[in-house]
Design a protein around this nucleic acid. Sequence first.
DNA 1: AGGAATTGGTTGCAATCGTAACCATGGCGA
DNA 2: TCGCCATGGTTACGATTGCAACCAATTCCT
Lengths: 163, 163
Amino acid sequence: MSQSSQSQSSKSQPSKSQSTTLALENFLPYRLTRLTDAISRDFSQAYRARLGLTRPEWRTLATIGQFGTMTATEIGAHSSMHKTKVSRAVASLETRRWLVRTPDPQDRRVERLTLSKTGQKAYEDMVPVARSFETKLLDRMKPKERAALLEGLEALERTTLTE
Amino acid sequence: MSQSSQSQSSKSQPSKSQSTTLALENFLPYRLTRLTDAISRDFSQAYRARLGLTRPEWRTLATIGQFGTMTATEIGAHSSMHKTKVSRAVASLETRRWLVRTPDPQDRRVERLTLSKTGQKAYEDMVPVARSFETKLLDRMKPKERAALLEGLEALERTTLTE
DNA sequence: AGGAATTGGTTGCAATCGTAACCATGGCGA
DNA sequence: TCGCCATGGTTACGATTGCAACCAATTCCT
């Protein structure tokens, strides 16, 4: 599925003693980035091919699609994106006419962002694609493994993310 | 630990029906990238602060440190990096005099890359740091969760990575 | 033996990204 | 009400990235 990462050279053996050495291929941060890069690159192909979106644009679309109307700051908070990324993604979606800005009458610094009809269509087009991508990913694992992954991820998120 | 990702807006509720909507925060590719970004950013701070290395440079150092002597292509294969990344990282480590290139007498396209004494020192300096980073990460989880994470990750790697 | 295709590695270029600086508005205390 | 800090959002800039093109050396095929 993923051609993005090269294959491991499975034959080469360490020439240094175990204790002085770190096995990169077993190192958790490395494993996570490698896995994540491959998966998110595969998935990004889906929305890039289908909608011509970049990743920040997809996340922005997904967030507004999920909640209906949001401010740029809220989008950033919900999709873990820096505000400059959100700003540029919003600008790009706006020129595509997939979203509309309306000034907030209460606070003129704020812009309320809403999907246009076209943007909404695009979102609704992508939801089943995303769902099936995730399903395919999980369905290749045994039920026990799948459960383990979700439990483990949740635990790691709990201890790592929310301060 | 990680200030890199913003906190979730835990109060906002979806304004769309469940079925038409995708909950980004539960979407596996999103969860993985968010988690991975946070972790690898935290870890990168460690080697950036200590050694002044970028991520490709750290991976290169780690790979040569692990195997002793390698070619650029082998480094890329073992650390999942594009050859241009490896090329630039090697060049940078070379100007620091942390590694040495020696031409391969058998095949003059190839360069054999070895750590200098200084580079070796730097590597040996980082190994315990990396180990303790990983340990700290895992030690905050309950044993059962830790086991689940590792089992789940392995399974996902198995079905996703190795074609 | 002698091109054609492959491999190892580097470089140019355009796109993307994060940091910091910035502008405008709003909240707040004296 | 005035000044000051905080907030929402955009932009300029340098650094990093991936892709494609490239050069040199090797292997393959006939």
